[in-house]
Simulated scan of single mutants.
Amino acid sequence: MSYRWHNILLKSNQSILEALKVIDNAALRIALVIDDTEHLVGVVTDGDIRRHLIKGVGLDAPVEHVMNKTPVTAPKNVTRKDAVKLMESKGLLAIPLVEKGKVVGLETLNKTGSGRTYENPVFIMAGGFGTRLRPLTDNCPKPLLKVGDKPILEIVLNSFIRSGFKNFYISTHYLTEMIKDYFGDGSKWKVNITYVHEKEPLGTGGALGLLPNDVPDLPLFLINGDVLTNVDFEKVLEFHNKQKAHATMCVRDYEYQVPFGVIQGQDNKVINMQEKPVEHYFINAGIYIVSPELRRSVSKNRYIDMPSLLESSIEQEKDVVMYPVREYWLDIGRIEDYKRAQLDIINLDL
Results as ranks from 00 to 15, higher is better:
residue 230 N to K: 08
residue 238 E to N: 03
residue 72 V to K: 11
residue 102 K to Q: 12
residue 312 S to E: 14
residue 32 L to P: 01
residue 29 R to I: 09
residue 64 E to S: 12
residue 134 R to K: 12
residue 84 V to R: 15
residue 223 I to K: 04
residue 99 E to G: 08
residue 341 A to K: 09
residue 185 D to N: 06
residue 126 A to P: 07
residue 2 S to F: 06
residue 194 T to E: 10
residue 6 H to T: 04
residue 324 P to G: 02
residue 311 E to Q: 02
residue 126 A to R: 14
residue 108 T to N: 06
residue 22 V to N: 01
residue 61 A to L: 03
residue 257 Q to K: 13
residue 68 N to G: 02
residue 304 I to L: 02
residue 53 L to K: 01
residue 336 E to C: 05
residue 263 I to N: 02
residue 186 G to F: 00
residue 342 Q to T: 12
residue 233 F to P: 11
residue 147 V to D: 00
residue 72 V to P: 06
residue 21 K to W: 14
residue 20 L to V: 11
residue 265 G to S: 03
residue 26 A to W: 13
residue 241 N to R: 13
residue 189 W to T: 12
residue 55 K to I: 08
residue 293 E to P: 00
residue 264 Q to N: 03
residue 11 K to P: 00
residue 322 M to Y: 07
residue 58 G to Q: 05
residue 232 D to P: 06
residue 252 R to K: 08
residue 322 M to L: 01
residue 201 P to H: 06
residue 260 F to A: 04
residue 350 L to K: 01
residue 225 G to C: 10
residue 75 P to M: 12
residue 128 G to V: 10
residue 110 N to T: 11
residue 142 K to Q: 09
residue 240 H to R: 00
residue 324 P to Y: 04
residue 185 D to Y: 01
residue 15 S to K: 03
residue 309 L to T: 02
residue 184 G to R: 08
residue 241 N to E: 15
residue 171 S to H: 03
residue 211 L to I: 13
residue 40 L to Q: 12
residue 57 V to Y: 00
residue 329 W to T: 09
residue 343 L to Q: 15
residue 252 R to W: 15
residue 275 E to G: 03
residue 210 L to R: 12
residue 336 E to P: 04
residue 257 Q to C: 10
residue 343 L to H: 11
residue 110 N to L: 15
